[in-house]
């Protein structure tokens, strides 16, 4: 039963298998995102109050989803790497950090762009925005740490510990920021609006979310494959691959 698990731990096996998935994933990603973008930007009805500016939701919401999910992917991979000493999990962890940071940044940036026409300001210290910013700092800490070790193995182990400590902390951070926000809540702006979306608006969003999940998986695979090649560059199979045999 554990055989697949041990196989999964072999970077070479993973590299070959993931190579077969890549084209399918890429096609799914392009189709879903293209459909979602065209549907959402051109065919979904205008919002009654926000007009066309609401359409940025089709980027903003999926990116925010994956920004947080990405942290848990990273921490889970780090935990697997630490507990079972699985090299591959370490590589996934290292590959997930910059990707998650980029998505967090996109979520914050699109949020700011969206905020200007909606609330008249690029930035407010709302609970969710602030939590997102702290999440970005957590990612930045991990990336900074991962860059400062001389060997990739140690760097992955160190980042795994930091990611796990961060994971334990995230619920506390989110709760505390929520609580902090209720203390200072400005009366005029309410972010938790959008009680129910019209199905015509919601369907393209769903497509975009699926598309972003495929995109995340695709980029994570590509990053991991690069990491595998970098770490295993001294092995014969990578050398053979590079020579095109």
């Amino acid at each position: 039963m554990w055989q697949w698990f041990h196989k999964l731990g072999s970077p070479r096996w993973f590299y070959q298998i993931s190579g077969k998935f890549l084209p399918w994933l890429a096609v799914a990603c392009v189709v879903l995102i293209a459909t979602g973008v065209v549907w959402g930007l051109a065919f979904a009805p205008q919002d009654a109050r926000q007009g066309n500016s609401f359409r940025i939701i089709y980027i903003h919401v999926p990116a925010s989803f994956l920004a947080l999910a990405g942290y848990y992917v990273m921490a889970a991979a780090g935990a697997v790497g630490m507990i079972w000493k699985m090299k591959l999990a370490d590589m996934v962890m290292v590959a997930a950090a910059p990707l998650g940071a980029a998505l967090t940044f996109i979520a914050l940036f699109t949020g700011a762009v969206w905020g200007k026409p909606t609330w008249g300001t690029y930035w407010i210290w709302d609970a969710r925005i602030t939590s997102m910013l702290v999440l970005l700092f957590l990612y930045i800490g991990i990336i900074a740490l991962s860059r400062s070790f001389s060997t990739r193995e140690t760097s992955a182990r160190a980042c795994a510990i930091l990611a796990l400590v961060g994971t334990v902390n995230i619920p506390i951070i989110y709760k505390s920021v929520d609580w902090w926000y209720t203390l200072h809540q400005p009366a005029t702006i309410k972010l938790s609006g959008a009680p129910s979306m019209h199905p015509d608006m919601f369907k393209p969003l769903l497509v975009m979310i699926l598309g972003f999940y495929c995109f995340y998986a695709l980029v994570l695979l590509l990053n991991t494959r690069t990491e595998i090649l970098l770490r295993e560059r001294r092995t014969t199979w990578v050398k053979e691959l590079a020579e095109g045999k």
């Binding site: 957590l138 800490g141 900074a144 951070i173």
Partner: peptide, 26 residues
């Protein structure tokens, strides 16, 4: 985590400060 890195100081702050948020708030 940063003990063996000689440029530890700034890195240490970067790594640790986001985790201090709840304590600061409460």
């Amino acid at each position: 985590l940063t003990v063996a890195l000689h440029k530890g100081s700034v890195l240490l702050s970067l790594v640790v400060m986001p985790l201090y948020v709840p304590v600061l708030i409460f």
